[in-house]
């Protein structure tokens, strides 16, 4: 018991190294993950953008937070997929019959999800810069944005873990992410919620994506964030905690 605990971090870094190789050797996953959000960004900015009244003069600035969340929501489908493939191939069984911490293979996937989503987010921000995104945010605000996005990624990653562990076919493994990808559309991500009919508006103004988007948007604009950031963080923490507890139970049972 002592030894497996002592080696936990070195084991996890070996496993992280393994899945990072997967990501860099199949760069198409990064492309697949980022291409749709980029296309959406182009579409909204250059096609719909003229017709959307947001009260800002730079629609790319307005739109970017929501696009980032959509990127992460598509990225975690691959986390679930990689996990599912490991369960199928029997490589998890090999790991579990070895003297390493039982949860190390799972944490390897969780870390990989963080790193690969961070890469996708950077790609999207670079494209947004080309399209005219500008920010007056200072270092602290950027750090806060990074923190919120990391927390959001972790929360969704644990949902992805549940999906990856309980899926029965490759085709079904990513399906859980579709509704999550869709959530930003019924939020303040693309248009102000004031323009929505009352029922939709009530949903939009109270769902987590709106708080997260508003917090990031204010941070990037160098404006005071108010309570949005705390509500956003509370949502992320809450989802992460529930998903984590549930995922660990599935892991104990299935793997």
């Amino acid at each position: 018991m002592e030894t497996t605990k002592n080696y936990f971090f070195s084991d996890m870094s070996v496993l992280l190294g393994r899945s990072m190789r997967h990501i860099f050797r199949s760069m198409d996953t990064i492309i697949t993950v980022t291409i749709t959000p980029i296309a959406m960004m182009l579409l909204f900015v250059y096609v719909f953008g003229g017709a959307i009244q947001t009260g800002t003069d730079n629609y790319v600035n307005y739109l970017l937070p929501g696009i980032l969340l959509i990127t992460i929501a598509s990225g975690i489908a691959y986390t679930a997929y990689r996990l599912f493939m490991d369960m199928q191939s029997g490589i998890f069984e090999r790991f579990h019959s070895m003297p390493i911490a039982r949860s190390a293979p799972l944490w390897g996937h969780v870390l990989t999800s963080l790193v690969s989503n961070a890469i996708s987010v950077v790609v999207i921000i670079l494209v947004a810069l080309l399209m005219g995104f500008r920010s007056s945010a200072g270092v602290l605000s950027w750090l806060a944005v990074a923190g919120i996005l990391a927390l959001f990624t972790l929360a969704l990653t644990w949902i992805a873990v549940i999906a990856g562990l309980s899926a029965t076919s490759v085709d079904g493994v990513g399906a859980f992410s579709y509704p999550i990808i869709f959530l930003p559309f019924i939020s303040s991500a693309f248009v102000p919620t004031e323009s929505m009919p009352s029922v939709v508006r009530a949903f939009a103004e109270n769902q987590p994506v709106t708080f997260i988007v508003d917090a990031i948007r204010s941070l990037l604009a160098g404006q005071p964030v108010g309570n949005d950031i705390w509500i956003a963080l509370a949502w992320c923490f809450g989802i992460m905690l529930v998903a984590y507890v549930f995922a660990m139970r599935v892991y104990k049972k299935r793997a």
Binding site: R18, R21, H22, R25, S26, S89, G90, I91, E93, R94
Partner: peptide
């Protein structure tokens, strides 16, 4: 194990 437990990409 019964099915080769190797990493395909490595």
């Amino acid at each position: 194990g019964q099915f080769a437990a190797v990493d395909e990409i490595l």
